[in-house]
Measured scan of single mutants.
Amino acid sequence: MEVVDPQQLGMFTEGELMSVGMDTFIHRIDSTEVIYQPRRKRAKLIGKYLMGDLLGEGSYGKVKEVLDSETLCRRAVKILKKKKLRRIPNGEANVKKEIQLLRRLRHKNVIQLVDVLYNEEKQKMYMVMEYCVCGMQEMLDSVPEKRFPVCQAHGYFCQLIDGLEYLHSQGIVHKDIKPGNLLLTTGGTLKISDLGVAEALHPFAADDTCRTSQGSPAFQPPEIANGLDTFSGFKVDIWSAGVTLYNITTGLYPFEGDNIYKLFENIGKGSYAIPGDCGPPLSDLLKGMLEYEPAKRFSIRQIRQHSWFRKKHPPAEAPVPIPPSPDTKDRWRSMTVVPYLEDLHGADEDEDLFDIEDDIIYTQDFTVPGQVPEEEASHNGQRRGLPKAVCMNGTEAAQLSTKSRAEGRAPNPARKACSASSKIRRLSACKQQ
């Protein structure tokens, strides 16, 4: 084909351009004929944790799935940006308080904090938690009735009371019990989460009196709706648990309003109706937990002794299953770290194939690490110290990083047969305790 000078094309009309061969290198194709290559998922490591896909996002930050490269346990990490926390009232204080509380709590029905990582340079905090497959609110939203069968609701409620009793025994008032803060594992274990607005009572406090509340409006008791200066913290949790039980068994809320002012007005009056299909035992329990006067409201001991709580409820309806993943529609909620794991395991070791967030990740503290002497050669063979940054567990980050890069360049065919977990650990520049 004859090559045409581009400067001469402006002298031709459209018809003349076609005659000189423009149609031979300008093609129009339908979008259905285009085959897009999927974007390669680059592996990203935060300390010893391999990052997966997004699980959810809230006002405080994002939650992603991660894999512990040492234990191969599935975890969830809450990623918090200090810049964003400053824009939220009491944001930083709530996060630090939640970390302090979770560090000393150990119960099967309370979410466990596994690790805390802090990135000084990017001003990011990573709260590594045990993995929960789904939230209770997500399960309720997945069915038209917006409720659980009585047998399933009873099982979840009993676990909620177990976890709540443990928190109260530790002198902690949750203040925000609701389905949105109750998570579930694949085995059906309920976990109380989000202790950001919780309050730890003084060890020598005479009672459970509280003065502040930041919980969700629909789950607040009349004493808070009416603006009382002080109130019983434990009875606030009992009320919120009662509203939660009402919601998961009926699909409704005892109090509603077009806006928060109308909602608080209705809560302050204390008038509500219980659907007739709840039955006398459940209705009596709800009335005891939603008692207007805090002094007359049920205690956890009274809830445990109630006939509806103690009764064994046979399954009359099919239980609400864990819904498919909202993004991938995966009904099994498979591990989202698998594509990243395959990338590390299947590809040659190259620095361009993975990302390490930083050479140094500070753990379990908000301060910069200490310094240790770096050896410097002298005339008599002895070495003197220069400062060298280290990880919180004493690992020399720069030395590990250099060693990792040197190993990656060394030709050794046997290394390709290593397991995925050992490869992740070798790529991680800074081991965590």
Rank of each mutant, 00 (worst) to 15 (best):
V3G: 12
V3W: 05
V4H: 15
V4S: 06
V4G: 06
P6A: 05
P6I: 15
P6V: 12
L9A: 09
L9S: 11
M11W: 15
T13C: 14
T13G: 01
E16A: 13
L17H: 13
L17G: 13
M18H: 11
D23G: 13
H27R: 06
I29H: 01
D30E: 07
D30P: 15
S31W: 05
E33S: 04
I35G: 09
I35T: 10
I35S: 12
Y36F: 02
Y36M: 05
P38M: 07
K41A: 09
A43T: 12
K44R: 07
K44N: 06
L45S: 10
L45F: 07
L45T: 09
L45A: 04
K48Y: 11
L50S: 07
G52V: 07
L55I: 11
L55Q: 14
L55C: 12
G56T: 01
S59L: 14
Y60L: 03
G61S: 05
G61A: 10
V63W: 01
S69R: 07
T71L: 05
T71E: 11
L72I: 08
C73Y: 02
C73V: 13
C73G: 06
R74A: 01
R75L: 04
R75T: 04
V77I: 11
L80G: 02
K81L: 07
K81N: 11
I88F: 04
P89E: 15
G91R: 06
E92Y: 10
E92I: 00
N94A: 01
N94H: 10
N94L: 05
N94Q: 08
V95Q: 12
V95H: 15
E98Q: 01
L101Y: 08
L101P: 01
L105M: 08
L105W: 02
R106L: 07
R106T: 15
H107G: 04
H107R: 01
N109W: 02
N109V: 01
Q112N: 13
Q112P: 09
L113S: 02
L113R: 03
V116E: 13
V116A: 01
L117A: 09
L117P: 02
L117R: 07
L117V: 03
N119S: 03
N119M: 02
E121Q: 07
K122A: 08
K122N: 13
Q123V: 05
Q123D: 05
K124P: 03
M125I: 07
M125A: 07
M127V: 05
E130K: 10
E130W: 00
E130S: 11
Y131R: 01
Y131E: 01
C132S: 02
C132Y: 03
V133N: 08
C134A: 07
C134W: 01
G135D: 06
M136H: 00
M136Q: 01
E138D: 07
L140F: 00
S142W: 02
S142M: 05
V143P: 00
V143R: 09
V143W: 03
V143N: 15
E145W: 11
E145N: 12
E145Q: 09
K146N: 08
K146G: 04
V150R: 08
C151T: 06
C151P: 02
Q152P: 01
Q152C: 09
A153Y: 00
A153L: 01
A153R: 01
H154G: 01
C158I: 13
C158G: 02
C158V: 05
L160Q: 00
L160F: 02
D162R: 13
D162I: 06
E165Y: 09
E165Q: 06
Y166K: 14
H168L: 01
G171L: 11
I172M: 02
I172V: 08
V173R: 02
H174T: 15
K175S: 05
K175V: 02
D176I: 00
I177S: 00
K178V: 02
G180S: 07
G180E: 07
N181L: 00
L183D: 01
T186V: 09
T186L: 13
T189R: 11
T189V: 10
L190G: 01
I192F: 07
S193V: 04
G196V: 07
V197W: 09
E199L: 05
E199F: 11
A200T: 06
L201S: 04
F204A: 06
A205F: 10
A206N: 15
D208W: 02
D208L: 11
T209V: 11
T209S: 04
T209P: 09
C210I: 07
C210F: 06
R211S: 10
T212Q: 15
T212I: 07
Q214G: 14
Q214M: 15
Q214R: 12
G215L: 06
G215I: 05
G215V: 04
S216M: 01
P217C: 02
A218E: 09
A218R: 05
Q220V: 05
Q220T: 15
P221V: 06
E223Q: 03
I224K: 08
I224E: 06
N226A: 15
L228R: 15
D229Y: 02
T230S: 05
T230H: 12
T230C: 08
S232I: 11
G233S: 12
F234A: 10
W239G: 00
S240H: 06
S240R: 04
G242L: 00
V243H: 00
V243N: 03
V243R: 01
T244N: 01
L245S: 00
Y246M: 09
N247C: 07
N247L: 08
G251P: 00
L252F: 06
F255I: 10
F255Y: 09
F255T: 05
G257Y: 14
N259F: 09
Y261C: 06
K262T: 06
L263C: 07
L263S: 08
E265T: 14
N266I: 11
N266P: 07
I267R: 06
I267N: 06
I267F: 03
G268L: 14
G268H: 07
G268V: 03
G268D: 13
G270H: 06
G270T: 07
S271W: 02
Y272L: 03
Y272V: 03
A273N: 10
A273V: 03
A273I: 12
P275Y: 05
C278H: 06
P280L: 10
P280I: 10
P280W: 03
P281K: 09
L282Y: 06
S283A: 09
S283M: 09
S283V: 08
L286F: 05
K287Y: 04
G288C: 06
E291L: 04
A295C: 10
A295L: 04
F298Y: 04
S299F: 02
R301Y: 14
R301G: 12
I303M: 02
I303D: 00
R304F: 01
R304I: 02
Q305R: 07
S307P: 14
R310G: 04
K312V: 09
K312Y: 08
P314R: 09
A316S: 04
E317F: 02
E317L: 10
A318C: 09
P319Y: 12
P319Q: 11
V320W: 03
P323N: 13
P324S: 12
P324V: 14
S325P: 13
S325I: 14
K329S: 03
K329R: 02
R333K: 15
R333I: 12
M335Y: 10
T336V: 12
Y340A: 14
D343M: 14
L344Y: 05
L344R: 12
H345P: 09
G346Q: 15
G346T: 15
G346V: 04
A347W: 14
D350T: 12
D350G: 09
D352T: 14
L353I: 08
D355G: 15
D358P: 03
D359L: 13
I361R: 13
I361Y: 01
Y362I: 14
Y362F: 06
T363D: 12
T363P: 10
Q364V: 07
D365W: 10
D365A: 03
T367A: 11
V368G: 11
V368P: 12
P369R: 12
P369Y: 11
Q371D: 11
Q371M: 12
V372A: 12
V372M: 03
V372T: 13
P373F: 09
E374F: 10
E374I: 12
E375F: 09
E375G: 12
E376P: 10
A377M: 13
H379Y: 11
H379R: 11
N380Q: 12
N380F: 06
G381R: 12
Q382R: 12
Q382Y: 09
P387K: 06
P387R: 12
P387C: 13
A389F: 10
A389C: 13
N393H: 13
N393C: 13
G394L: 14
T395Y: 12
T395A: 04
E396N: 12
A397P: 08
A397L: 09
A397E: 12
Q399T: 09
L400R: 11
L400G: 12
T402E: 14
S404V: 13
S404W: 11
S404T: 09
R405H: 14
A406C: 13
A410H: 09
A410E: 10
P411F: 05
P411M: 14
P411N: 13
N412Y: 13
A414M: 14
R415W: 12
R415C: 09
A417S: 09
A417C: 09
S419K: 11
S421N: 14
K423L: 12
K423T: 14
I424T: 12
I424Y: 07
R426T: 08
L427C: 03
A429L: 12
C430S: 14
Q432D: 12
